[in-house]
Nucleic acid binder design. Structure first.
Length: 392
DNA sequence: CGCCTTTGACCGGCGC
DNA sequence: GCGCCGGTCAAAGGCG
């Protein structure tokens, strides 16, 4: 009997092994499941019935039957053996279940590993893009990208800095459209603040768009009408400009998609006035920098009439204090990964007679939503040229 | 109590 | 000179 039992066990074990080995597909798993379900039913039913009845199953009434004493002993052993086999089967079933679980987890592990590899690949790609953006933001390192800056009369820069900047720039707007270039004689006859800034990328389409904007700008000096024309002509790229009347302070206008009342640029501002400007029913709010007493920097915030989601923020003046930690932290943490894929620094007029004067345009509304923490990054990148901007 | 926003009044530049 | 308009002032009130 022992031999029979061991044979039975071996037979079942080999059957289980053959089922388990090399079975990784789901169909095989199902087959294994089915086999073991049937197996469990067969083997456990006998054992459970035995347990429930409290007596061996199909045990013949042996009392008073001397003739069948040996047979009774044999039947008893057989029943016990069957019970043992049932128990062993249960163990094997549990074992095979564990093995199946292991196989499943192994496959899941494979999938997860692929996910991790893919994520790592994406991460590396983003890092590369980040590096490219950083390089593009630094004109000194990448001669292929032309960041044009012109500063005149900026109290925030000394003469050497200005010369250094002008060495690397070209005055795009005036020359490109045949306007009399005032660069040659500005120093003598024009002491107004002129500030021109463009970012030329490899995209010729953007250059074309910018040329169109410049044409519009030339033809219509009125700020609001220019703005409207530009938006009608180029709905996807929104521009703006700043107008300074008689003061000589640096001034920049930033247009950005922003849901909040003001852009979070890291500085502390106090509202000191609000007006309904002509041509735009949206009120224009006036803010003063309160980081340090007497700081002359002010900003105007106004919603764009055509697109209420766009916030036009105009900064003016130079901070007389180191920027707060908040601005510094944001400038350093809001990395270029938060930048829109393409942001454009658009031009301002540079000494155009009778035109909108002395402003710079920073449009961050191109094709996407503006994270209101982007500004410090962009501004910090150009803080050397524009010290009134929040920076590191 | 200090800081902020609101809001009407005021001021100065500019065009007619 | 007058009116318009953008920008600023300052009192009042709210809020933490």
């Amino acid at each position: 009997m022992e031999i029979d039992l061991s044979l039975k066990i071996d037979a079942r074990e080999s059957k289980d092994r053959s089922l388990m080995q090399g079975n990784s597909s789901q169909e095989d798993h199902k087959a294994v499941d089915l086999q073991h379900k049937e197996h469990r039913q067969d083997t456990t039913m006998a054992a459970t019935r035995e347990a429930e009845d409290g007596a061996p199953l199909e045990l013949p009434t042996l009392q008073g039957n001397d003739k069948t004493k040996d047979q009774v002993g044999n039947a008893d052993v057989e029943i016990r053996t069957r019970a043992l086999v049932a128990i062993i089967d249960v163990y094997f079933f549990q074992l095979s279940m564990l093995q199946m679980e292991m196989i499943r987890m192994r496959e899941e592990n494979k999938v997860l590993r692929k996910e991790v590899e893919k994520t790592l690949q994406d991460y590396n790609d983003l890092r590369m893009e980040f590096a490219v953006v950083i390089q593009q933001n630094n004109p000194m390192k990448d001669p292929g990208i032309s960041l044009s800056v012109s500063l005149k009369g900026n109290e925030g820069l000394n003469q050497e800095q200005q010369r250094g900047n002008e060495r690397n720039l070209n005055i795009v707007n005036n020359r490109r459209h045949g306007l009399p270039s005032q660069d040659d004689n500005d120093d003598e006859e024009n002491h107004e603040l002129g500030l021109s800034l463009t970012l030329k990328t490899s995209s010729s389409q953007r250059e074309i768009r910018q040329e169109d904007r410049n044409k519009v700008f030339q033809e219509t000096p009125d700020a609001e009408s220019v703005q409207h024309k530009l938006q009608q002509t180029h709905s996807s790229v929104i521009t703006s400009h700043a107008v300074s009347t008689s003061n000589r302070k640096a001034r920049v206008s930033v247009r950005a998609r922003c849901q909040t009342a003001t852009m979070n640029d890291g500085c502390q501002w106090r509202k000191y006035g609000q007006k309904i400007a002509k041509g735009n029913p949206c009120p224009r709010a006036y803010y003063r920098c309160t980081v340090a007493p007497g700081c002359p920097v002010r900003k105007q915030v106004q919603r764009c009439f055509d697109d209420m989601s766009i916030l036009i923020t105009t900064y003016e003046g130079t901070h007389n204090h180191p920027l707060p930690v908040g601005a510094t932290a944001m400038a350093s943490t809001a990395s270029s990964s938060a930048l829109p894929s393409t942001f454009m620094l658009l031009y301002s007029s540079h000494g155009v007679p009778n035109g909108p004067s002395k402003g710079m345009v920073l449009s961050l509304t191109n094709n996407g939503h503006f994270d209101n923490q982007i500004l410090p990054t962009v501004l910090s990148a150009h803080h050397q040229a524009f010290p009134w901007m929040p920076s590191r």
